[in-house]
């Protein structure tokens, strides 16, 4: 499969989960294991541009797919506009949910570039954050959407 634009090729057991493959075979530990039951969204990555929970997908199911993880969003020290918006709007505290939250938001804004606040809240319903109460995350998503469409926030 392709991960963040580079080819990855490993022989794995069929039962290997995608998140385990990314972390242990590819060494990409930005993607977190949270609940491990497809509830919390901490393991969210993009598979062919769509957000998926990598704890509930087998690595063999992603064979041939283009996977994007948090490490692949922006080069070097640069931040992706969604990362920048989370930074500016304090959309995190402990940070454990953040990689998955950011990936879910990147996928969501691709599908819905100009969401309402209600749509943002529904768009991230698959991602749990136990610190922020979500308000700053919602602010960050709305700011990222505005920045993307060229409107000043």
């Amino acid at each position: 499969m392709s991960v963040n634009g580079g080819a990855q090729d490993h022989d794995v057991e069929p039962r290997t989960l995608l998140v385990q493959y990314l972390r242990e075979n590819c060494g990409l530990t930005g993607t977190k294991v949270g609940c491990d039951t497809s509830s919390c969204g901490a393991c969210t990555v993009l598979a062919d541009g769509e957000s998926v929970k990598s704890c509930t997908m087998l690595a063999v199911q992603a064979d041939g797919a283009a996977i994007t993880t948090i490490e692949g969003l922006a080069p070097g020290a640069e931040l992706h506009p969604v990362q920048q918006a989370f930074h500016e709007h304090h959309g995190l505290q402990c940070g454990y949910c953040t990689a998955g939250m950011v990936m879910a938001v990147v996928g969501f804004l691709d599908e819905n570039p100009n969401p309402t606040e209600r749509e943002v809240r529904l768009g991230i319903e698959g991602n749990l954050c136990r610190c922020t109460g979500y308000q700053n995350i919602v602010d960050a998503v709305l700011a990222a959407a505005a920045a993307k469409s060229g409107v000043s926030s």
Partner: peptide
């Protein structure tokens, strides 16, 4: 059904 990630798969 579920959430965005679940609906994609």
């Amino acid at each position: 059904v579920g959430d965005n990630q679940v609906r994609h798969r």
